[in-house]
């Protein structure tokens, strides 16, 4: 998809080129380009970590504001926009939960809380059709609250809780990957409900881990 775009500085047609082919000046980034394309990694739930890091670093080396410290104000602004967009993309793709939510959104799902523009409304909505999960979560939270109230000598139980939550997270991630792989391969409108359910569970687990970590710090 070539865009009809002209260089802001010299007026030459630049299409999608980050630097003007005529005067070599930096162009504003395309806000519509997706994170995978921006960092040069294939779209999918599994991301090659080495390739992601290299793509990110190589691009920051070209676009970072430090490279434009002596350039005009407009060039510095565009470089800031590039660096900001690269950082958002990198942060999203390196974290499996953020990455999963982002993929759901790309496929047309809600993917709440997964990106910079995540909405406030409906944020902590719990899926009603999941009473078993809700029950487990509530039991674990209650236990954590009890442990936090009287943390002395709870080290062993806290460690067990961590193992348990990490096992649950791993299971959810495997489920998320399967659901997303199916959705990505779908020829018609993909079914995203399952991926969204895994993401909701993962967000609950993440919040639990944050509280667990607070207790762990207290114990350390």
């Amino acid at each position: 998809m070539m865009r009809d775009r002209r260089c802001w500085s010299c007026g030459v047609g630049v299409a999608d080129a980050p630097f003007c082919p005529g005067c070599e000046v930096i162009q504003p980034p395309d806000a519509g380009v997706d994170h995978f394309a921006l960092l040069g990694v294939p779209r999918g739930f599994q991301v090659d970590r080495g390739r992601l890091e290299q793509g990110y670093q190589e691009r920051q080396a070209r676009f970072h504001p430090d490279r434009f410290a002596l350039a005009s104000a407009t060039e510095r602004r565009h470089s800031l926009e590039w660096a900001t967009q690269l950082n958002t993309a990198w942060r999203t793709l390196r974290d499996p939960v953020l990455r999963g939510g982002y993929l759901v959104r790309l496929l047309g799902g809600r993917g709440e809380g997964s990106t910079a523009s995540g909405g406030q409304a409906g944020r902590a909505d719990m899926n009603d059709g999941d009473p078993e999960f809700l029950m487990t979560v509530m039991e674990m939270r209650e236990e954590l609250a009890e442990l936090s109230a009287n943390p002395v000598g709870t080290g062993e139980r806290v460690a067990q809780l961590r193992q348990e939550i990490e096992r649950r997270i791993a299971t959810e991630l495997t489920g998320l990957e399967k659901a997303l792989t199916r959705a990505l391969a779908a020829t018609s409108a993909p079914v995203l409900a399952e991926a969204e359910r895994h993401l909701d569970h993962l967000r609950y687990h993440q919040r639990f881990i944050e509280e667990l970590e607070r207790l762990e710090e207290e114990l350390a």
Partner: peptide, 13 residues
């Protein structure tokens, strides 16, 4: 520990 420069938005009502 978000890499900078960064821009993030949040919606409120």
């Amino acid at each position: 520990n978000s890499p900078i420069p960064t821009a993030r938005a949040q919606d409120f009502t």
